[in-house]
């Protein structure tokens, strides 16, 4: 929900036009930042769970049992207890990493490409076309992000594709705005002018000079949206608008376990803790990346 923080129009400007050694020094700085390293480690661990979880925890996350319903954490054979249908929580949380990360990260990736394309087109073209594009973007930007996501997926109906589509549409406007401001600044830089003077076509200039220099700052901004996207994607499933039962997705699991908070409160809270850990790691990593790039000189 967090306002896709004020699109810092001024911020990408500082990061414009850097040499390859710039990126090397950014990563060198990141390696010395303990918080960034810890966040990266958590994200890496989650990725491993998402990719290899079914082999690491070879327990069926769908096998239910009426006799083993809502067992507490620490039950022999079920280290993290069981859910309201007697399914193993550890298996469901691990298998859920795949769904939850997929639902949270995909919209930002799609919106990154779409938003960058729209914003760079508007910024580089400028004029009437640029204005028309950006005013349309402004209309979508005028909706609070949670409201737009729920409005779209509510109208389209429950389902994975609809949830992904809605979330992508939510993140396109802020990314397009940042991309537009970066591209507008680049358009008037001397080296773009020089390329134009030496006869480079518009496509070549955009491909070589604008894309090459604009994608970095836009990417950094997009990384800061992953945390919001994770919370929103699981939120849609929590409302019953995203992933559908019996799939193990953390938001959906949280919803179905709500009825159990008087019986096994801490088992019921587990899926949310996973969402929290993911979202805070992405947030910290994005923050560290931004401050690693911010160093002047």
């Amino acid at each position: 929900m967090a306002a896709p923080a004020v699109p810092a129009a001024a911020e990408p400007a500082a990061a414009l036009v850097r040499s390859p050694s710039f990126w090397r020094s950014v990563f060198a700085r990141l390696r010395r930042d303990p918080v960034a390293l810890a966040a990266a480690a958590v994200i890496l661990a989650l990725l491993v769970l998402a990719l290899f979880g079914p082999w690491l925890v070879p327990v069926d996350p769908y096998a239910s049992s009426v006799l083993r319903r809502l067992k507490p954490i620490g039950t022999p054979g079920h280290p993290l207890g069981t859910d309201e249908l007697g399914r193993d929580m550890l298996a469901r949380l691990v298998h859920g990493a795949r769904w939850s990360l997929f639902m949270g990260v995909t919209p930002v990736v799609l919106a990154f490409f779409l938003g960058a394309a729209i914003g760079i087109t508007a910024g580089y073209a400028g004029g009437l076309l640029g204005t028309a594009i950006m005013r349309t973007i402004d209309v979508f930007y005028a909706f609070p992000s949670v409201l737009l996501a729920i409005a779209l997926s509510g109208a389209l109906g429950a389902g994975i594709e609809n949830a992904l589509l809605s979330l992508t549409l939510v993140f396109v406007p802020p990314i397009a705005r940042v991309a537009e401001s970066v591209a507008t600044q680049l358009r008037n830089r001397d080296f773009v002018e020089a390329a134009r003077a030496s006869g480079a076509g518009a496509l070549t200039i955009v491909r070589v000079h604008v894309l090459g220099n604009a994608l970095g700052p836009i990417f950094v901004y997009a990384t800061s949206l992953v945390s919001v996207s994770m919370i929103l994607a699981s939120g849609l499933s929590f409302l019953g608008l995203g992933v559908r039962p019996p799939e193990p997705e953390w938001g959906l699991m949280l919803n179905t376990l709500r009825t159990a908070i008087y019986v096994q409160p801490w088992v019921a809270a587990l899926p949310g803790a996973m969402i929290f850990a993911t979202s805070i790691s992405f947030n910290l990593l994005a923050d560290a990346l931004r401050s690693a790039m911010d160093v002047k000189g």
Partner: peptide, 18 residues
């Protein structure tokens, strides 16, 4: 501040109810 912007608020609500 980071906790505030990173916590899934629907989950925080559940935890507070618990």
């Amino acid at each position: 501040a980071v906790l505030g912007v990173s916590v899934p608020h629907y989950w925080l609500g559940m935890v507070l109810v618990i």
